[in-house]
Write a protein that binds this DNA or RNA. Structure first.
Lengths: 241, 241
DNA sequence: CGCGTGATTGAAAAGCATCAACCCAAGTGG
DNA sequence: CCACTTGGGTTGATGCTTTTCAATCACGCG
């Protein structure tokens, strides 16, 4: 049974058996990291790249004033820090929100993998590009949208992304975040996040209770949030080789 | 005399003469595009990648309400849309702010270039990663920082980036933006941008008049903005091959 | 049962947007 | 050569959004 990482890469096209074995080899024997722990911190220059096999982690940065901005959620199959294989120095931190299964892969192995296969190189590059597209949309979100639309839009995105990997059930999905962590994501205070969530619930658009997001009417929520999923680039058609 | 594009790539390491000729060939005979023109629009599926040889352009998206969010400034030597070589469909638009010299390169040529040279592949991937790092910092900026620090931080970044390519003079640099375009960048209203700029001037931190930014005391401004340039990854040391 | 973390509520203040003028300099056309 | 236009930039007044501070509530856990 292929793990989440391999399943993700398979979405890009054929992987040879050889590659699968290679990848399976490299992504075996994860270690368990408990919740609220940094996997890697700003300024680190690690020799390994890390890969989340299970759990939820976030990219973030903290300002001197102490407030945290979250850039991305990392789920099963996501690279933590593919960057460092090239950039060497981490310019932000990555921390777990829940207990996570994590594997380490030496930088050199990653680079060798990439250089040994055009297919893999493209797949990895593709991941980077999609991450960047999501980041752009997040900037639109915090830069322009009012509070209710902002949170609604985030929920739409997560719904779409999790649905694509079979992690939704009947319009609801699990999201192990506190309201404060949600606030750090959308650039609002925790208090206002709370009020906004209640307004969204009263409007019948979404609820977020007990780490579960429930969307009664997806189309309605997406219309409200002006959500257009095309930035997620889910049509994974690679350019002709 | 190498053009801006080649000069940029040379920063990553040795380019063979063969590569230089190839690149020079591919980046020759630019066309002139006037100001305030879209080079490419959201939804396009172009067959070419575009490259800015001269002038200033921006990545942006407009919401239904009509407000624009700017994601990135593109200057000489920047790829407009390297993404589309892989992702095919543009998820945002790119427009000129000033008249620009632009060249088109067929997607296929780009992919061939990348696959023909590990060095180039890394250099391109590197560019993507740095763009992403900048995007993250912009998210921190609009997500968390108050108005004055927000604009100050942007100016610090631009100062650092332009200084690196020799486009600053004595603590000042050219920035052909209107205040409204600046507002679209930092997610504020044009009115508030105006007031903030005046506050920054009164505080003796920066001035922005006639498309010129002047920083009397760089260290002072950077301290005020809590600017840490490490996210720009200016130490262009590639990982060992 | 007591404690701690996260959620919820209220009141007050700050920050920012909006609207509406007005100014100023650089065209443009008669 | 001047009246007119036009696109920023600047200013003031007003009100909404959001933050902050503080208190209270709910619930899981030792």
């Amino acid at each position: 049974m292929p793990n989440a990482f391999i399943r993700k890469l398979e979405g890009f096209g054929l992987l040879s058996e050889e590659h699968k074995t290679l990848l399976e080899d490299v992504s075996s024997s994860p270690r368990l990291v408990e919740a609220d722990t940094d996997l890697i911190s700003e300024g680190d220059k690690p020799e390994d790249v890390q890969l989340i096999m299970e759990g939820l982690a976030v990219r973030y940065k903290v300002s001197r004033a102490g407030d945290r901005q979250i850039f991305a959620y990392l789920v099963a199959g996501d690279f933590c820090d593919l960057h460092v294989a090239l950039l060497r120095r981490m310019d932000h931190s990555i921390g777990t929100l829940t207990p996570c299964q994590v594997v380490r892969i030496p930088n050199a192995s990653v680079l060798k993998l990439v250089e040994g296969s055009t297919m893999l190189a493209r797949a990895f590059w593709w991941c980077t590009l999609v991450d960047e597209a999501i980041l752009r949309e997040w900037l639109v979100n915090v830069g322009g949208r009012p509070a209710e639309q902002r949170i609604a839009h985030l929920f739409c995105e997560l719904h779409a992304r999790l649905k694509a990997v079979g992690r939704t059930a009947d319009g609801s999905f699990h999201l192990p975040l506190s309201q404060a962590e949600l606030a750090d994501t959308v650039g609002m205070s925790n208090v206002h996040v709370n009020r906004t969530l209640m307004a969204l619930k009263d409007a019948g658009l979404v609820t977020f209770r007990g780490h579960v997001v429930t969307v009664p009417d997806t189309a309605k929520l997406e219309a409200f949030a002006e959500f257009d999923p095309s930035y997620l680039h889910r049509d994974r058609q690679l350019a002709p080789a």
